[in-house]
Simulated scan of single mutants.
Amino acid sequence: MESIRVFAGDCTVHFEGSRDRTQRGRVVVVVKPDRTVLVHDVSGYQPVAWLTRADSLTVESGPGSFGLVAHAGEQVLTVESNDVTGRAEYPASEAGIPVGSHPKTGEPLVRTNGAVVGLDSGTEFRLPAGATVLDETCDDCGLPLMRTERGATFEVCIDRQCDPLDDRVKDRFDGEWSCPDCDSPMRIIRRSGRLLAGCDAYPECETAFSVPAGVVVDDCECGLPVFETERGRRCLDSTCEFA
């Protein structure tokens, strides 16, 4: 679990960059794991000084003092304590939409950018693009189900080891279409992290297409399926001249 460090006290803050400035006051300094530094005073939500995702960060903390230097390109943020009020370190995680709890650990599960994450352990379940996490849970493991579209609509466990989406798509569409270049069956495969419809004659024929997030609604003039996606209709072959 990553942590956020917090320092408080009478500090001198110096910023070099687009507008050089030096400030002093009793402030709270927040240091995030991604090397973002925020300096807050008594008013408002806006920090009086900050540096986002610094290229380098040095923090020195002694019995009665602390200081830091953060660099991001040509910008430099320096904080020096004159009088220390307090310091602490707290476990932290991304904040997301609550989607239930882990059936084994009981820890809260939240949906963040592209994943469902356990708040206490950091356990992560990556979600396919466009997936919706459901209120229903998996009958086998108790984790939440997700709904996703890959040629058809599938409801599967968020744990791909428990109920692999690839297997569902393969059961439904493996051999369903023919290669437009050699007429061999198209197989559902995963290659380089992508779910593909690839020619069964590989490596003699290297034709392969990414399976988009959407459902099959029609046949294209080229013989491949047409998908309805968030951006409209498209052929499995995104470069198809008939699409």
Rank of each mutant, 00 (worst) to 15 (best):
E176M: 12
A129T: 11
F227K: 02
D181N: 15
T36M: 06
P212W: 03
H102N: 03
G151L: 03
L57W: 04
V13K: 02
L143N: 06
P225N: 03
Y202C: 00
L143P: 06
L127W: 05
R160D: 15
G86H: 01
V69W: 00
D218G: 05
E60G: 13
C235K: 00
V169Q: 05
D140T: 11
G175Y: 03
S192M: 13
D120N: 14
S210D: 13
C199A: 01
E2G: 13
D55M: 03
S61Y: 04
V28A: 10
M186G: 10
G25R: 10
K170T: 09
R5S: 10
C199M: 02
E124A: 15
L236N: 00
R168F: 11
P91A: 08
P180W: 03
L127C: 02
T148E: 07
P108D: 04
D218K: 02
G9C: 07
G106W: 07
T112V: 15
S81A: 07
V84H: 05
T58S: 15
V69T: 11
G62A: 04
L57P: 03
A208F: 04
E16C: 09
V156D: 08
E74D: 13
R168M: 13
R233V: 10
P212A: 03
R172L: 07
C205L: 08
S65M: 08
L51D: 02
V84S: 01
R111I: 10
S192P: 12
C235G: 08
